[in-house]
Each structure stands twice: as C-alpha cells, then as structure tokens.
C-alpha cells in the first residue's frame, strides 16, 4: 500500500514537473514549478531504491536525507505562500512569508543541520530509520515536522473557506483537495508522538497528502485552461 502510494506520488510529481517545465526558467509562476521539481526530489529520496544510490554518491553519510528535508521545506514555503495568496488570506501569507514565517523556517533549517552534525549517522538508511533511537535524530525529525506542520496549518483555514464558498464546482473541488492534503500533514503530528506512534499510518498520510495537493493544483490548471470557455476574465 505505502509503496504503491509512494511510487504514484513520485509519478504524479514528476508528471507535474515535466508539464510545468517550460515555466521553470521564466514564465508563469516559476515558484510553483520549482515547488514541484523539489517535491519530485523529496518523494524520490524517500524511496530506498533511489535514496540508497544517491546517498552512496554523496558519501554514504545520509547527507541525502538533509537534502530531502531542506527540499521539503522549500516545497512548503513556495507552495503554502502561493496558496495563501491565491485564496486571498493576507494573514496566512504574512505568517508564512513574514518575519515570523521566515524565522520559523530558519530555525528549523538550522536545527536540522545542527542535529545532523551532532548525530552519528554513518551508513545509509532511508528516512534515517536505523538511527531513531538517538535523541539528536529525534530532534532532527521534529525540526523537520515543525515547519511543514506550521506552514500547512497556516493555509488550512484559507483553503477551507474557498472549498465551502460559492465558487464553481471545479474550483471548490480544487480547494477541497488541497485542504485535505494540508490537513493530513497536520494530522500526522499526533501519530509521531511516542504515545500513539504509528509509522505506517504517518507514511500513508504523508504521501496521500502529496497526492491530494497535487490533484488540487492540477484541477486549478484545468480550470485555468478552461477560463475562456467558461466566459471568465481574460487572464
């Protein structure tokens, strides 16, 4: 189940990146195209089949995992700040792009790097599962979760408002799909606590969240592509 979900998420992210590749350098919403490129990297690095060779190339000291974490941060920063702006939530946008948001991002990124250097992570291990008993690695993981949860929580309200508004059905479906995705990211937090620890569930929810957000964005692009047919504004 998890493996199928992971490969599906990778295929979807890769397809979206290729679809948007013309706008990676110049063009419409470059940041969004980069978010998908980074998402593809992140999902790819969570698969052992890709992680292990890449990490071997980087010296077999799990530097690839740091790369994975930082690219996830990039995805969330680029994506959630755009979603907040798209759904007209200046507060959410300020919480992500403003001083507070940038501070959270900086602290989490720094935390990741420091915890990585303090920990002893010799020997490639996808998702660092072999080292979870180390307190440094626990801190490393919590820094990783902190920023994604923070950014997702910021846009949950904005997407929910749009999902239950009187927009056209396709736009509401798009917003709802993103809402489910970002809510799932937040919902994984309790399952990471020692009390309710459930890693398989966390994995399933994480990759389902990626799929939901990607589907939401694809729906936005379809709606954008049909704008002339619908008699909407000429954007």
């Amino acid at each position: 189940m998890t493996v199928i979900l992971q490969w599906t998420a990778l295929a979807v992210c890769l397809a979206c990146t290729i679809w948007r590749s013309p706008s990676l350098f110049g063009g419409r919403n470059r940041g969004l195209s980069w978010a998908f490129a980074l998402a593809t990297v992140s999902v790819a690095l969570s698969l052992p089949a890709i992680y292990l060779p890449v990490d071997a190339l980087l010296g077999g000291i799990n530097l690839a995992n740091v790369l994975l974490r930082l690219s996830i941060f990039g995805v969330f920063f680029l994506l959630t700040s755009r979603v907040a702006a798209a759904y007209n939530s200046p507060l959410a946008r300020a919480l992500i792009r403003g001083p507070l948001g940038v501070a959270v991002l900086a602290v989490c990124s720094l935390g990741i790097c420091v915890a990585y250097f303090l920990a002893d992570v010799d020997g490639s291990s996808t998702g660092l599962v072999a080292f979870t008993s180390q307190p440094e690695i626990a801190a490393y993981m919590w820094f990783g979760v902190a920023y994604t949860t923070y950014a997702s929580a910021c846009v949950v309200v904005a997407t929910a408002k749009a999902a239950f508004s009187r927009r056209p059905a396709i736009d509401r479906t798009a917003a709802f799909s993103m809402l489910v995705g970002f809510a799932l990211v937040c919902a994984t937090v309790p399952l990471r606590l020692p009390l309710w620890k459930n890693w398989p569930a966390v994995d399933i929810m994480t990759f389902a969240a990626i799929l939901f957000v990607a589907v939401g964005l694809v729906l936005v692009w379809i709606s954008f592509g049909r704008r002339r047919v619908r008699g909407g504004p000429r954007a």
Partner: peptide, 14 residues
C-alpha cells in the same frame, strides 16, 4: 467578486 476570486487563484497557482 466571484470572477476576481477565480482570477486570483489562477494568478498565483495557474
């Protein structure tokens, strides 16, 4: 208003 909202989404996520 509806048009402006849709346009905003397209502008940032299109």
């Amino acid at each position: 208003d509806d048009t402006a909202a849709a346009r905003n989404v397209w502008e940032y996520l299109g």
